[in-house]
Design a protein around this nucleic acid. Structure first.
Lengths: 163, 163
DNA sequence: TTTACTGCAAATATTTTGCAATATC
DNA sequence: GATATTGCAAAATATTTGCAGTAAA
């Protein structure tokens, strides 16, 4: 879901406080990037943000986007994903709840789900010499659409695979 | 643990069968790469395998390593990881058991652990329209070593962080 | 003998870095 | 006014691709 007005105000405040705390400047680019990220429903990469801002006739260089996503990761307003494709994906993370991802290894489709049993099992885990901050669970497999396609191909060429 | 002789024979057989099935050739490079991978205890990247083979005076190009790791992923003898660093990491996966990873976000340290509650919770999960093949759970946080360093720095410069 | 595979080098893609110009504080 | 931040271009890094030579079947 796109973020509500009150969420957008809260995250601006969090980012502004973070910048103050580290003696960093509150530039318009920074808030434009943050705002755009929180208007995105699912996952995105740097290229996507870059283009979305361009469409608004707002030019921010990629170097600046990379730079600022780093800050947003640091203050936990964004999380980072590497699902296995070529680009690093990101996702807003304030008030979004812990969720897991399923990834189709054929078509790259990513879907989210939540599960209290899994959540509880992970949170109950005590790790020696380690302070847990977050976690990501990726479940890989094949979505039904790809599975059906595979079966259709197999049916078409029955001799293709030996044994 | 390094792989036993019987494991090494089994994986060679699995790979050979896979190559037969797909009408691919059983080149010495392929088995040298597989063998080297199964001599590695933990995670590795392409560069590492390349150098390890070189140390044995066995030259295999990186293109060939990339190419063949792809095949090994396909026949499930190797799994792929993207922990958040710059390179893709790999790991042998025959007979290694399902295990999870904890990653220190400061120093990049990766450690493994197993947990039956987590395993059970994930395996009991039913996903609509999706066939599960595997999963990865990465727990991020700070290892005690880095935590102590951070605290030491904070104690040294008490005024650095405002508020 | 056929053609899949390898090695090399070039191409592609992503992210990082250096530096001059600019804008925040 | 001091200097952190931006944009740009170049650099660094990782991975893929094209092609000629080599070797498995």
């Amino acid at each position: 879901m796109e973020s509500s007005e009150s969420t957008k105000n809260t995250i601006k405040k969090i980012f502004a406080d973070y910048l103050d705390k580290h003696a960093m400047r509150k530039t318009p680019e920074r808030f434009a990037i943050l705002d755009k990220i929180y208007s995105i429903k699912g996952h995105f990469d740097v290229e996507t943000i870059y283009n979305m801002l361009l469409e608004d006739n707002y030019h921010v260089s990629k170097a600046t986007i990379y730079n600022n996503i780093g800050l947003l990761l640091d203050c936990k307003l964004v999380t980072r994903h590497q699902f296995g494709g070529n680009t690093t994906q990101y996702e807003k993370s304030y008030n979004t709840g812990i969720h897991n991802h399923i990834i189709c290894t054929k078509c790259g489709m990513v879907r989210e789900f939540t599960d209290t049993n899994i959540k509880r099992a992970i949170q109950n885990k005590h790790l020696r010499d380690f302070t847990i901050e977050s976690y990501t669970l990726y479940i890989y497999g094949i979505c039904d659409k790809c599975k059906q396609q595979e079966e259709a191909i197999m049916a078409e060429k029955p001799g293709k695979e030996k044994k």
